[in-house]
């Protein structure tokens, strides 16, 4: 391995980790909804879109400071999520998988249309979100014999930290808090949970709100890495392999799957062919599914007639 290859390897690993944090965060939102409501949310990308655009609008057009804009955007996301859950998903409880997939696809189409109609197709630049504590070009790693360093901007580092904090909060929430335990109980067996006095409706509302919030944060993350545009939702196509790879109902799977997919993407597109970036996740997915039909950590469902 030549010094330059080593530098590239470090560079790809660094980018891969930040992309992996993004994919893991998106996957977390999807897994959360799947775990407690058995819905694979194909409109998750549009929630991301909504979160990014609302925050951008509040910060640029209404000139709100970050600390005010973020909670306000979060509140709007929660309202949207609860409305969606009430109006569209509750009538479909107990319907076949295909109906639920299609209703979320229809929803994604509607939200995308609304976002496009309000904010238009133009790409926008998100204002700075993080305070400038550290100045300069970011984290640099020099390899002996190469002049250019491997580099990662502070923005990306902050986002990785945000993702890690969010994931830790999630785990704590699920393990320790009353609502989290109630959510796990609901996921395990809705009827049993109900008979223990858990309000399933409230659990569903909380689930969708939390998932919409994580979607909003991951939308902001994409917007900050790139721009605010109506194609933010396409990142979700890279996150579907992640959740299937990790197992639809496993939080650990979402995190590890996210890292595996993002790093493979980076190495393959960097060292072999950039055009492979969108296919590699699916190739990895097919290979893993051949060996483990429920993903790496998915719960094996035993069916009875």
């Amino acid at each position: 391995m030549s010094p330059n290859d080593l530098r590239l390897f470090i560079q790809f690993t660094m980018t891969g980790i930040s992309e992996g944090a993004l994919l893991a965060l998106i996957a977390l939102g999807l897994v959360l909804i799947y775990k407690s409501t058995d819905v694979l949310n194909f409109a998750h990308g549009e929630f991301m879109l909504l979160g990014a655009f609302i925050t951008w609008d509040l910060m640029v057009n209404y000139q709100l400071p970050v600390l005010l804009a973020l909670p306000l955007a979060g509140a709007i996301m929660i309202l949207v999520a609860i409305a969606v859950e009430r109006l569209m998903l509750r009538p479909l409880i107990g319907k076949p998988v295909i109906s639920i997939i299609m209703v979320t696809i229809g929803m994604s189409s509607v939200i995308h249309a609304i976002v496009g109609a309000i904010w238009g197709p133009k790409r926008q630049v998100l204002p700075q979100l993080f305070p400038e504590i550290l100045e300069g070009p970011g984290l640099r790693i020099f390899v002996e014999g190469v002049r250019r360093p491997a580099q990662m901007s502070y923005e990306r580092i902050y986002w990785v930290l945000v993702a890690i904090v969010l994931v830790l909060l999630f785990v704590l929430f699920f393990r320790r808090s009353r609502q989290g335990i109630a959510m796990r109980a609901t996921a395990d067996d809705q009827q049993a949970a109900m008979s223990m006095g858990i309000s399933i409706q409230r659990i569903f509302a909380i689930t969708w709100s939390v998932a919409a919030l994580t979607a909003g944060v991951s939308g902001l993350m994409v917007a900050d890495f790139d721009t605010v545009s109506t194609s933010i939702n396409e990142v979700v196509l890279r996150a579907f392999p992640v959740i299937i790879l990790g197992g639809l109902d496993s939080i650990a799977g979402a995190i590890i799957g996210g890292m595996i997919i993002a790093l493979t993407e980076q190495y393959v597109s960097g060292f072999i062919d950039p055009s492979l970036k969108n296919v590699v996740p699916y190739l990895v997915l097919l290979l893993v599914l051949m060996a483990r039909p429920y993903g790496l950590f998915g719960e094996k469902i035993i069916e009875r007639v």
């Binding site: 109906s99 229809g106 994604s108 189409s109 509607v110 995308h112 249309a113």
Partner: peptide
């Protein structure tokens, strides 16, 4: 085009519900 897209999604949702 947006209206078209929205109507498409709405048609799916309304049918299913």
């Amino acid at each position: 085009p947006r209206i078209e897209q929205g109507a498409f999604g709405l048609a799916i949702i309304l049918t299913l519900i």
